[in-house]
């Protein structure tokens, strides 16, 4: 079944500050698309436009879930999650004073996911044995890597078709960044997800990406159809590798 996201002519900002101008992008069914760019270029804002946390001033955000088209602009966040789009938020945003298990169960809040919560929980515990060991522990007391696993697990509990990942590498040690990226790729494979991942760690992100967009000052400067051409592009070299 087709699960995709299409963004057309999107403008967005906070009050008088314009963050995104004229964004066009597409995430096709079954793809992993990387949204690249250094800090402050609008990656998170773009993700928030999809989840309804930021309302675009102009343009369209369309999602196709199991072949059915939906217009996402103007919908409440929980309704967008309810369609089958899950988000792993930037900085994880767990419920620190709830236990690991409660955090996971809250992921299954939407009506479609609730009846299958035990099944989903078993899946998460199998995929992340660490979470099973810590099921009764408060989420806030875990290490950064474990918290990132929990955030991913919680998003999977919503039984998503499309997974949005916002800056999974933030605040993690390099080895954990690599492991988190691998986990995302693995979950995508196992569950047949469509993934859009905003990330500033370029080398890590393109390891698993099918395609990529590079965002600079709120515009898409480069749209690459394969990871290799991303690596060789001048823009990326200038942004990440300090070359002239």
């Amino acid at each position: 079944m087709a699960n995709s996201i299409t963004i057309e002519g999107l403008h967005a900002g906070y009050g008088a500050v314009r963050v995104l101008t004229g964004i066009d992008m597409h995430v096709a069914s079954g793809e992993t698309v990387a949204l690249l760019g250094t800090n402050g270029n609008g990656k998170s804002t773009l993700i928030k436009c999809i989840t309804g946390q930021v309302r675009p001033t102009q343009g369209r955000v369309l999602a196709t879930i199991e072949g059915k088209p939906h217009d996402l602009v103007g919908r409440a966040t929980q309704d967008i999650i309810g369609l089958g789009i899950a988000i792993v938020p930037e900085g994880r945003r767990l419920f620190p004073k709830l236990t690991v298990e409660e955090n996971l169960l809250l992921g299954a809040f939407r009506a479609a996911a609730r009846p299958r919560r035990e099944e989903s929980l078993a899946f998460c515990y199998e995929a992340f044995p660490r979470l099973k060991e810590r099921r009764a522990q408060l989420a806030g007391s875990m290490s950064g890597g474990e918290q990132q696993m929990l955030a991913i697990g919680r998003s999977l509990m919503t039984l998503p078709k499309i997974l949005l990942v916002d800056e999974p590498s933030v605040g993690l040690a390099p080895i954990l960044v690599a492991r988190t990226i691998d986990t995302i790729a693995e979950m995508k494979q196992r569950l047949g997800l469509t993934v859009l991942m905003a990330e500033q760690n370029f080398p890590q992100a393109i390891r698993i990406a099918d395609r990529g967009y590079v965002l600079v000052h709120g515009r898409i400067e480069l749209s690459a159809d394969d990871p290799q051409s991303l690596k060789n592009s001048d823009i990326v070299r200038r942004l990440y590798l300090g070359g002239a």
């Binding site: 989840t51 946390q53 409440a76 966040t77 929980q78 999650i81 309810g82 899950a86 988000i87 938020p89 945003r93 767990l94 419920f95 620190p96 004073k97 709830l98 409660e102 169960l105 809250l106 992921g107 809040f109 939407r110 996911a113 609730r114 919680r154 998003s155 509990m157 919503t158």
Partner: peptide, 24 residues
């Protein structure tokens, strides 16, 4: 589920909505 949802709101309202809890 209402109690679970309220607990999520208490901890982090934005995160609650981002995991599908109808906060409002």
């Amino acid at each position: 589920w209402i109690g679970m949802g309220l607990a999520a709101i208490r901890d982090d309202e934005l995160a609650a909505e981002a995991s599908g809890v109808p906060g409002l």
